[in-house]
Design a protein around this nucleic acid. Sequence first.
DNA 1: ACATCATATCGTACATCTACGATAAACGAT
DNA 2: ATCGTTTATCGTAGATGTACGATATGATGT
Lengths: 103, 103
Amino acid sequence: MANPTATDVSVITERDEELAVLARALSHPARVAIVRHLASMGTCICGEIVNVLPLAQATVSQHLKVLKTSGFVQGEVDGPRTCYCVNPETVKRFQTLVASLPA
Amino acid sequence: MANPTATDVSVITERDEELAVLARALSHPARVAIVRHLASMGTCICGEIVNVLPLAQATVSQHLKVLKTSGFVQGEVDGPRTCYCVNPETVKRFQTLVASLPA
DNA sequence: ACATCATATCGTACATCTACGATAAACGAT
DNA sequence: ATCGTTTATCGTAGATGTACGATATGATGT
């Protein structure tokens, strides 16, 4: 092991892992903007987001995937389009975890 | 440009950038644990943190540098050691930005 | 001066992230 | 059936992140 004196069950908790995963999802400005935009629109299709961001369609799709995997947004197929919306539960969970950081 | 139809001054705001920078700093479980541990101790020396984490000294020092650069912690040289503590202003700022996300 | 301790930094290997163009897949319209 | 539209995925290049051992730096104690 790198550090034999460290406590095996370290101070890194499940909550730390969870917070880190959610923080990582919002660690890119484009993804923060997507979440905000989605929240302000209630719901909107992928192409609308592409039109608003200075990024290629493939890149936006990739960011949306990150947000979907982490639970921040949900996508629903609607004919040829995909309709995205924020998952408020994940936002609230993130807010709870961040708020519980001792300041 | 990747996407000529995108608004040049895009929806990505300064706040989005700021939130992303702070979120990135907490996007690793070890760094979340360091902030929590530091907050619970009030203040403690680098070696104490190394002893508690399952990571090499160099790695911990690197994580501390990330936290210092982003403003989450402050380090004060105290003789041969360095004394670290949380910067509550940055934690509060992060909490404010996260709390202002529409859920 | 010298050895020791605590910490930061260097160099490096490997993994992950971010961006893109190209292409595939799924649907609606003609 | 074929075409255009919309979105996801593939492949890839370059940047950044994460881990480590080794080494430099700076202070204390002998």
